[in-house]
């Protein structure tokens, strides 16, 4: 597939993607999946089903053994280094293992994603403050992340993923260490970003965050898609939502 010149409607397009780890571990087998811009998709399945592998392939942390992956119109098999770097700046990834720098403070960890995009320090500070406020971590602004609980670290990882106003948000078990109240706080934040136009792919075990949802829930089992939820739903039109006010407020500093 060639890279499109015009604005693509699909954010993610996977065609018969397989991933095999040596010696012979089949993590994904012939997975085909399309995600429209502005959509929220939940990836579910047991541990080892291939959810995290799929997310890693989407940021080209790993390459597929076969198949084609397009993200935002870019074929990840053919993308140049520079274009991949630019693409990654538009993806917010909340990693399952958080990938926080333990000796750096909460604010510094969140700032990393914005620093590589050369965001102005004053803008960075405003965004960090607002995100911490929203995630209930204001007091932890100057605390090294090594001094935080797992739940707090998870929220910092989420804040970093959202800080750069990404077009695509990938979240790997984002609520794994959170209580129900904080889970709802995080999901509300995700919904706000979605209503701003961001596409979300959330890999999770936590049934509570997608039960009764109108969004697609895709189940993976042994590297294959076994349930697709509603096929290719139309992207939800951003509905008036009080939560939008926060997102507007967050980026109003630019």
């Amino acid at each position: 597939m060639s890279e499109h010149q015009e604005e693509p409607k699909l954010m993610i397009d996977l065609v018969k993607v397989s991933k095999t780890y040596l010696p012979d571990i089949q993590a994904l087998s012939d997975v085909s999946l399309s995600v429209r811009k502005g959509e929220i998709v939940f990836l579910t399945g047991k541990s080892g089903a291939g959810k995290s592998t799929l997310l890693r392939l989407l940021t080209r942390m790993e390459k597929p053994t076969k198949g084609v992956i397009e993200v935002s119109g870019h074929d990840l098999n053919l993308i140049s280094t520079v274009k991949l770097q630019i693409l990654r700046r538009s993806i917010g990834f909340a990693f399952q293992d958080f990938k926080l720098l333990p000796e750096r403070t909460v604010a510094e960890n969140i700032a990393i994603a914005m620093e590589v995009s050369y965001t102005r320090p004053s803008v960075m500070q405003t965004r960090i403050r607002k995100l911490l406020q929203r995630l209930g971590l204001v007091e932890k602004h100057n605390t090294p992340t090594s001094g935080l609980s797992r739940g707090e670290q998870q929220r910092v990882a989420i804040a970093r993923a959202l800080a750069n106003n990404p077009e695509l948000i990938l979240a790997d078990e984002p609520t794994g260490n959170l209580d129900s109240e904080t889970t709802e706080m995080v999901m509300a934040l995700f919904r706000q970003y979605n209503q701003q136009g961001a596409t979300l792919v959330i890999a999770t075990h936590d049934t509570s965050i997608y039960q009764g949802t109108s969004h697609r829930v895709i189940e993976l089992r042994e590297g294959r898609i076994v349930a697709r939820g509603d096929e290719e739903p139309e992207a939800e039109a951003p509905a008036p939502d009080p939560a939008l006010a926060f997102a507007d407020d967050l980026f109003s500093d630019e």
Partner: peptide
Amino acid sequence: KDELELLRLVGASTNY
């Protein structure tokens, strides 16, 4: 190593 990996994942340029 971890920091450099993270920088790559968030899209830091080669020169950065």
